[in-house]
């Protein structure tokens, strides 16, 4: 190894060891996510209004002091609805990624640890599923499972399984062939212990980042399904549904689509940026 190889490595290591404040790129998204989680747990912290209360006389109010984000065609306060929508969206995001990951990990671990035939079978199945675009796959399940948040979570979750499963499969296979696994074998450890203590933890570690980023992705997917009318039904306060409702008035009341859309973007951006920060931290410390 030469000095020039060593130096950048040292610089990265020390930057983390010093433990100074995380960069703004992590703090701002992190703060946004904390506020979002608070809104999901207790929306009344942010607004006193009722997200479903109709006030026909206040319909189509533009954003202003009385209605921060304006009102919709029935006079419902959009800010309140966006706040209440946070719970649905986060639930969707976290729920869908949980469904995706549990299936993906099961498939990936079975494929990765199994014999050659199992590994091929899983690989082929995933390749076939992978050839369907995610949205088509999700649509397929959504149309069969019906409306509502439960089916939406399952449909979005399953739609993303092939991509994640393939990733898990790759991780497990590479961990399985790692030098430390052979070293553990040579020490005389049992296969069960090697899987438990080496292969699974090392294969799962990079997934922390994937999961964080995946939450934002799942919110986008489920919003898309709601927008297509397969998710939550109006007048439910859900960002995708709100987009779908606002579509008819997009010329007259831009704020009806702008603010739910903005929050979808901000949420996805925040989870992605925060995920990237986690990634940098984990990778900086580990090879």
């Amino acid at each position: 190894m030469t000095l020039s190889d060593v130096l950048p490595g040292r610089a990265i290591a020390s930057r983390i060891r010093i433990g100074r404040l995380p960069p703004a790129g992590a703090v701002i998204p992190g703060l946004f996510l904390v506020l979002l989680i608070l809104a999901a747990i207790e929306p009344r912290l942010f607004t006193a209004a009722n997200p479903l209360a109709i006030a026909p006389r206040e319909a189509f109010q533009p954003p202003g002091p009385a209605h921060l984000f304006g009102t919709d065609q029935s006079g419902r306060d959009i800010f309140t609805r966006v706040i209440y929508g946070a719970r649905q969206s986060l639930l969707l995001g976290v729920g869908a990624i949980t469904v995706s990951m549990s299936l993906a990990i099961t498939l990936g671990v079975i494929g990765g640890l199994g014999g050659r035939i199992t590994q091929r079978a899983v690989g082929w199945t995933l390749d076939v599923l992978f050839s369907f675009p995610t949205l088509i796959l999700a649509l397929l399940f959504a149309s069969h499972l019906g409306n509502g948040i439960g089916p939406l979570i399952i449909a979005t979750g399953i739609g993303n399984v092939p991509g994640y499963a393939r990733m898990v499969l790759g991780q497990v296979v590479s961990a399985r062939h790692a030098g430390y696994v052979e070293a553990a074998r040579a020490l005389g450890h049992s296969p069960a212990r090697i899987i438990r203590r080496h292969i699974l933890p090392n294969a799962m570690r990079p997934l922390i980042v994937t999961v964080t980023m995946g939450i934002g992705q799942a919110i986008v997917w489920s919003s898309a399904l709601s927008f297509l009318g397969l998710g939550a039904k109006p007048p439910a306060a859900e960002w995708g549904t709100m987009l779908s409702m606002g579509r008819d008035f997009v010329q007259r009341a831009w704020w009806m689509t702008f603010f739910p859309g903005l929050f979808i973007v901000l949420t996805t951006l925040s989870t992605t940026m925060f995920g990237r920060y986690l990634q940098r931290r984990l990778e900086g410390r580990l090879p």
Partner: peptide, 19 residues
């Protein structure tokens, strides 16, 4: 018997669990 037959590799780093 394996613990009584040790091994040292060329690249020790890859033979250690990185965590």
């Amino acid at each position: 018997q394996r613990p009584h037959l040790g091994v040292v590799y060329q690249d020790p780093l890859s033979s250690f669990d990185p965590r």
